[in-house]
Nucleic acid binder design. Sequence first.
DNA 1: TATTGTTATACTCTATAACTATA
DNA 2: TATAGTTATAGAGTATAACAATA
Lengths: 137, 137
Amino acid sequence: MVAGASLLDQLADLSRHVQAVHERRAGEEHVSPSLARLLGLLCDRSPTMNELAALLDLDKSSTSGLVDRAQRRGLVRRVPSQLDRRSVRVRLTPDGSDLTARLAARIAADLEAMLEPVPEEDGAAFARSLSVILGPR
Amino acid sequence: MVAGASLLDQLADLSRHVQAVHERRAGEEHVSPSLARLLGLLCDRSPTMNELAALLDLDKSSTSGLVDRAQRRGLVRRVPSQLDRRSVRVRLTPDGSDLTARLAARIAADLEAMLEPVPEEDGAAFARSLSVILGPR
DNA sequence: TATTGTTATACTCTATAACTATA
DNA sequence: TATAGTTATAGAGTATAACAATA
């Protein structure tokens, strides 16, 4: 596909729009984008600090601080590993799990509403375009 | 359009992807996303601090700090207003202008490359979808 | 009095480097 | 020695509140 300048601008706008949805909904729960991302990763995993740092693409010290702040708010726990006593696993608390689910549901609803006005006959091409852009999953 | 969960995930991924392009290219110029956004806004405007704060959707104190850092790097200037002596206008310096143009060109090239694999026959529907999602410009 | 912009202060987020404990 | 994680420190980014200069 050959893209004009205005399409590129629209793509950037769409991106900011989606980010804004995440930020706004997270903000309603007094959660920063970084913290929201952490919670989202933890909802189906209990990684070690090192693994978490790799998933977040952050330095381990940054990850440690992020987990500190989440822990101070009762959203995650550090679980000592028995296999390697240097290591800890990070896990959502029930409160953290609830908040994460609430957040995900609201964001999904917002994005659905955002896509709703796209005419049904363009939907398939739109979905296909996203798949091609993002590559094999 | 009715969107499934995986499409919503892809939309979020696309958004992060586009953001990542901006961050990576800005990073190459040692410019933060916030600073890049400031420069982008200034490339066709010389707003007052108040106007700039509104454009960036930031507090005026945050805007002041952002302009401070840009100014310290020689990328923008504060031009005193003659009409209202409380007011200043912010303008790109030649260096800032060069950097901004370089950045915009690289980001555009990256996004074009990203869209290139979208089949030509889906391009129109994709562009139309973006327009509908973003609403009247 | 109201408005424009800056400053003081505080918190989050991030990184680098030094450190502790364990392997 | 090497690895997992934390801590010390520093800087960017943001906001609120108090302030100065001007209107």
